[in-house]
Design a binder for these strands. Structure first.
Lengths: 207, 207
DNA sequence: TAGATTGTTAATCGATTAACAATC
DNA sequence: TAGATTGTTAATCGATTAACAATC
């Protein structure tokens, strides 16, 4: 697994692009394309060939000069580096809608993270059951998708657990000494509105 | 609306942080805090006071030296700038789970974007009905949350519409001349796994 | 006035792009 | 060999941080 002692440094922005590489490589492989150049990858990803080469060479030496990259090698290598391979177990606590949406995500359905159990706050005493379960089964990742009061209570529980990370869809910022990834869905629509507004302003000016 | 001819330039990274400011300001106002300093805002946001002042001063002159910022003024001003105020209409097409999750989002429920109609691909001929509706009612924003074949078909329809933007949860990159915001939910979990893996490696090394 | 805190300029840091030698 | 394309170094660009004068 460890190639040549792993001296390279993967920048934050490169790390953020890894899922994108995986998505595209998967499609190429499914379409029986086993070879790809940095230029092609770049255009599929909406990036520059330079950036793709910077990214990939920071991960290791996967390319072959004059040839390009082997999509299958690249795919499995990035999967490795990204650290997604059914290694981690997860439990979801959240509103009915969020739970049913999240448990159907491919990342839980196929390979990826192993989803062990879900607790919908629509059910009686969901948080109590969640606490009992988590204390006993020690999942690696907690997916927090609650709303309102449940959120504060759930965070109290989470703070007592020995976990590896939190995937947070709730409105609240969580202070923990393990990685927390916030996904504020509504934020993304706001930035879309912002872009639309900006475009409209620009077009009005042009006239 | 236009303060002093709007010469300031809002950077991309500042724009991305606007929803975060709104979330925090809302909480402060709900807690009857009507005054806030850049230092306080920064700590709530997980940023530096410098960055907060850079951000806010790029939006306009909202602060008062020696005092701080008026949370209510700041909140409504940023709402304005962010361009979210029930101005835009939206329609959702997607899987049953995504539709029921999305339509319960606060951004659609309260003020924000006006959700006009939803089409679940679990229902017969959802895409046909969507097409008819969208052609007639001309929504501003299409929320695309389909999977599999429906995605390609839905994109075909979208390309024939006169819309202002697309909020895309589907796996597919969309080429359009209006703003598109992609939200690949699974990506975020992958970056969490990456952070967890990195932390574990580091801790192993330290020992 | 004295203390607090902004707005802005300058310095630093990190990420992207350009260019090209290395090499398949 | 000739053509293609990587990996890497250097140059550019943008974003963050530091510092401080302006001013409430």
């Amino acid at each position: 697994m460890n190639r040549e002692n792993e001296t390279r440094k993967v920048s934050k922005s490169t790390a953020k692009r890894l899922p994108g590489y995986l998505r595209i490589l998967k499609k190429l492989i499914d379409g029986n394309e086993f070879r790809v150049s940095s230029t092609r990858l770049a255009s599929l990803l909406g990036a520059s060939p330079s950036q793709v080469r910077q990214d990939l060479s920071s991960l290791g030496e996967f390319g072959l000069r004059g040839y390009g990259y082997d999509t299958r090698v690249l795919y499995t290598s990035i999967l490795d580096i990204a650290g997604v391979r059914e290694e981690y177990s997860a439990v979801i606590v959240g509103t009915e809608e969020m739970v049913s949406m999240l448990k159907s995500r491919p990342v839980f359905v196929g390979q990826g993270v192993a989803l062990k159990k879900c607790f919908s706050t629509a059910k009686e005493n969901a948080l109590g059951l969640f606490e009992d379960y988590a204390k006993k089964e020690r999942p690696d990742i907690i997916v927090l998708a609650t709303e309102g009061d449940s959120t504060e209570k759930a965070i109290e529980v989470i703070k007592t657990l020995k976990i590896k990370g939190v995937w947070n869809f709730s409105n609240v910022k969580i202070k923990l000494d393990v990685p927390v990834k916030n996904l504020w869905i509504d934020d993304s629509l706001m930035t879309l509105c912002y872009d639309i507004g900006k475009k409209e302003t620009k077009e009005r000016k042009t006239k």
